[in-house]
């Protein structure tokens, strides 16, 4: 290598052309190594994608097959209109509504806790907390998210329910209220951290634009930051709902296994997930109609969470487009 810069040189053009061509066509040894590496990585990524796609197809196939068998015995109209769910009794009814309402009731309670608190936590963390405070609070939230759900289940059953019973004497031992409250606390970190990410992505220049018009901090937060990050926040909410709908341990432990068609959160109910746990833990023989019910319920659950996740994805995508 020469140390001083090369002077302007015009090499004989035929050589230079050959040289440029040699580089551009990428046929040197380093190029071949690089190309092999690139295609190896590509193959690996493709394989990884294939595994998850294949798994999904497998799951959908199993679900669909057993659900199809189920609906050969039970009419889909009964499934969607009957208000009793008693497949394990002699007098059999196959109405999904008791399970569905239980899921809706407990998820609603959970969201009533998780949404406002999560949003407030996100605003506090992203807009108000000093970096030091945020650095202490965030790990605590993450610990909350890392607690196994079975622990939350017993927390609801053995701590929250007795506590609530002091104020609401008619509260049953198994009930939707305490399961919902505890589920809300469990989901809170998810809502808080996703919403906080959305708020942090709002460019500082927008905030400054509002401050420069004479806005106070609260006005900046409510009129600029929250609206600007709304689709991100909505996506977080929808994801949280889908998490609540699919939650299993808390409801199986603290909510009971009584498929009742009611909106009263003070009594025992059975969610879709809890029913699936109940049947899979029992000794229902493979291939019977009782066995097939869990796939019908599973399919219902799958459709609901899939729709929610797709919705959330749409919102997130819209949100990303705004600031790129």
């Amino acid at each position: 290598m020469t140390t001083e810069p090369m002077p302007a040189v015009e090499a004989p053009s035929i050589d230079r052309r050959a040289w440029v061509e040699r580089i551009l066509t990428g046929r040197q040894r380093v190029d071949r190594v690089r190309q092999v590496r690139e295609s190896a990585i590509l193959g690996l990524l493709f394989l990884a994608a294939l595994v998850s796609v294949a798994t999904t197809i497998g799951i959908v196939y199993t679900l669909a097959l057993e659900t199809f068998h189920f609906f050969q015995h039970v009419s889909i109209v009964d499934f969607l209109t009957d208000t009793q769910w008693t497949p394990l009794f002699t007098e059999k009814h196959y109405g999904i509504w008791p399970l569905l309402t239980a899921t809706i009731v407990v998820s609603t309670i959970a969201m009533l806790v998780a949404l406002p608190l999560g949003l407030l936590a996100a605003i506090g963390l992203s807009e108000y907390a000093s970096p030091r405070l945020a650095a202490t609070v965030k790990p605590i939230l993450e610990i909350l998210a890392g607690v196994p759900t079975v622990v939350y289940g017993y927390f609801a059953l053995l701590f929250v329910t007795p506590l609530l019973q002091r104020f609401i004497p008619q509260l049953e031992v198994f009930n939707a209220l305490s399961a919902g409250l505890v589920m809300g606390i469990m989901i809170l970190p998810l809502v808080a951290s996703l919403s906080e990410d959305a708020m942090r992505a709002v460019p500082q220049s927008l905030r400054e634009g509002a401050y420069a018009l004479g806005a106070t901090k609260l006005e900046v937060v409510w009129r600029v930051v929250v609206p600007s990050s709304l689709s991100g926040i909505v996506a977080a909410f929808i994801l949280a709902v889908s998490r609540a709908v699919g939650e299993t341990m808390i409801v199986a432990i603290a909510m009971g296994q009584v498929p009742r068609f009611t909106l009263n959160p003070l009594v025992a109910m059975e969610t879709m997930t809890a029913y699936i746990v109940q049947v899979s833990l029992g000794d229902t023989p493979h291939g019977t109609i009782e066995y097939q019910t869990i796939f019908a319920v599973g399919t219902t659950l799958f459709v609901i969470t899939m729709v929610l996740n797709l919705l959330s994805y749409r919102f997130l995508k819209r949100f990303r487009e705004v600031y790129e």
Binding site: T2, M6, A8, E10, W19, V20, Q28
Partner: peptide, 12 residues
């Protein structure tokens, strides 16, 4: 260039 270490820039 032949060694693959790249030449000094030559205006092209």
């Amino acid at each position: 260039a032949a060694r693959g270490t790249g030449p000094a820039p030559i205006a092209a």
